[in-house]
């Protein structure tokens, strides 16, 4: 699974905000261009980003395997035509080039995921988005991070309990209903206890955040981000 890993790479030392900027710039220009020359240039940039973050390429591709299935099927579907000549190579290659840039965007975002701990991303969100929306998003993301394993455990328990009572023999609609109602009841119970705890601790709109600071290394990263963003309009 793709997740943050502590390391000593350049990307790990960068401020999360400059890494986000690079990703957005890369995605913008990749969405704007599909010519072969642009794809070569994008591949080189993506390669540099992956090397700078020491992302293992094969593991990352495996993590995105479900997305890759659609990316692989799309050109085949585009190429297939009803009636002669049955296969339209040109439409297939157009779609294949479009799919390939999506793969590059996924790989570049994997570099961010590997090099940025959640608390840094959270601080970046809260410092970049002003006012209460930023606070809601930042605190909310931190809570999602905290509750994700808990709720996954809940779901696992529900499914095991259902399987033990031969729930797996029931029809699909009943199973979806059961899992849904039990998971939501438990989740809202947890949420209500959480809100009580937040009230008891005087939950405020202006909590103290971990410090973030731009360093000298962020300057070139921002330069790259701006260059990528501008290249979307070329």
């Amino acid at each position: 699974m793709l997740t943050y890993e502590p390391d000593e790479t350049i990307a790990h030392r960068l401020d999360p905000r400059s890494k986000l900027a690079v990703q957005i710039g890369f995605a913008a220009t990749a969405l704007a261009h599909t010519s072969p020359r642009a794809l070569i240039a994008l591949t080189v940039v993506a390669g540099v980003v992956l090397a700078a973050t020491r992302v293992p390429p094969l593991e990352t591709l495996y993590a995105y395997r479900f997305a890759l299935v659609i990316l692989a099927i799309a050109p085949l579907v585009a190429a297939a035509t009803l009636g002669p000549p049955w296969i339209d190579v040109e439409r297939g290659t157009t779609s294949a080039r479009a799919s390939y840039r999506v793969l590059l965007i996924l790989l570049v975002s994997a570099a961010y995921v590997r090099s940025t701990p959640v608390r840094h991303s959270r601080a970046a969100i809260q410092r970049t988005i002003p006012g209460k929306p930023g606070q809601v998003l930042g605190v909310g993301v931190a809570l999602v991070f905290r509750f994700l394993p808990v709720l996954r455990g809940d779901l696992q328990t529900i499914r095991e309990a259902m399987a033990a009572r031969l729930g797996t023999e029931r029809n699909a609609a009943e199973r979806i209903h059961l899992v849904g109602v039990l998971a939501l009841t438990r989740a809202f119970d947890r949420a209500d206890r959480l809100s009580l705890a937040l009230q008891a601790r005087c939950f405020a709109w202006n909590p103290t955040l971990p410090p973030l600071s731009f360093s000298r290394a962020d300057l070139p990263a921002f330069g790259v981000a701006v260059a990528l963003l501008l290249s979307a309009f070329v």
Binding site: M1, L2, T3, Y4, L20, Q23, I24, A27, L31, A63, Y64, R65, F66, A67, I70, L71, A74, S99, V102, I105, L106, L107, V108, S109, A110, Y112, V113, T116, V118, S121, R122, I125, V136, L137, G140, V141, L143, V144, F145, L148
Partner: peptide, 29 residues
């Protein structure tokens, strides 16, 4: 839903197939 999307964007494995990352939000799904 926006919290879910933001959590996925910063890399929590919340999207289908347990993936995350900003790329998924501009990707084919």
């Amino acid at each position: 839903i926006l919290l879910y999307l933001a959590a996925g964007a910063i890399g929590l494995p919340v999207f289908s197939g347990m993936t995350g990352g900003l790329g998924v939000l501009v990707g084919e799904t």
